[in-house]
């Protein structure tokens, strides 16, 4: 694998919810076109990392450089406009919007996004469901929709928070397929996961997060050899 330029560089990222500190100096790098996972147990700081990168979690210090631009200090809408797509935990499908409205909601921030037709080819289940209220879809379909809607916008970096959580194995497999297609199309992806077996099927590299910082880094090749170490760190 060739050493591509860094797409996202996180250095010394700290973040707080009120008084309580969630991140204590996250450091990691994601290169262009890479799929990287943040692994870790509940409360390790994975979700907070994504929320800090997109600026939803505003109380943050340190450095997050995306495509050469510092984003700490920007508001979340400005960060999104730089080309970052965010798929939150619990999917964030809007109940008062139809499937089509949900899909078309995020504004286009850059040219080069996928067309609706391409998205429907990738997620055939969504094709005929346009008028259905968003939350009337099954959990798997909602997850597909949550990913689908950030593919239109021209965002080049996708942040996906536990896209497989609570889904049946067959759907998890389908999402894995989708991620591989997205990687082929050149998207850079940061994936938050608890399930390292799933992560190993899609990712290039893994960062293990604990106590609000990165405690280990491994490539996908190392994961088999270091499985015991990983299991201890993840508490599984």
């Amino acid at each position: 694998m060739t050493e591509a330029e860094p797409h996202l560089t996180v250095r010394g990222l700290q973040a707080w919810y009120g008084e309580s500190q969630a991140l204590r100096g996250m450091d990691f790098v994601v290169r262009r076109g890479e799929v990287v996972t943040l692994l870790g147990r509940n409360g390790a700081g994975k979700t907070s990392t994504l929320r800090s990168i997109v600026g939803i979690l505003r109380q943050r210090t340190g450095s997050v450089v995306f495509e050469g631009r510092e984003t700490v200090g920007l508001k979340s809408n400005a960060i999104a406009r730089l080309g970052i797509g965010y798929c939150p935990e619990e999917r964030g499908i809007f109940a008062s919007l139809t499937v089509e409205e949900n899909l078309l909601l995020p504004p286009v921030v850059a040219p080069g996004g996928m067309t609706v037709a391409e998205i429907h080819d990738l997620f055939p289940n969504l094709r005929s469901r346009g008028r259905t209220p968003g939350t009337k879809l099954s959990g798997g379909e909602q997850q597909m929709l949550a990913i689908a809607r950030i593919l239109r916008t021209g965002a080049r970096l996708l942040l996906l928070d536990e896209p497989t959580e609570g889904l049946a194995p067959v759907i998890v497999k389908a999402i894995g397929e989708v991620l591989r297609v997205l990687k082929q199309r050149g998207f850079t992806i940061v994936l938050v996961e608890q399930n390292f077996r799933f992560a190993a099927t899609v990712a290039d590299r893994h960062y293990v997060v604990d106590g609000g910082r990165v405690v280990a880094e491994m490539t996908n090749h190392e994961i088999a050899a270091r499985q015991d170490e990983l299991k201890t760190m993840l508490g599984v």
Binding site: V54, G55, I56, K75, S76, N77, I79, A80, R81, Y86, P88, G92, L105, P106, P107, V109, I150, T153
Partner: peptide
Amino acid sequence: ELVQAFGID
């Protein structure tokens, strides 16, 4: 929050 994180002011 999420709407803003999609790029809307």
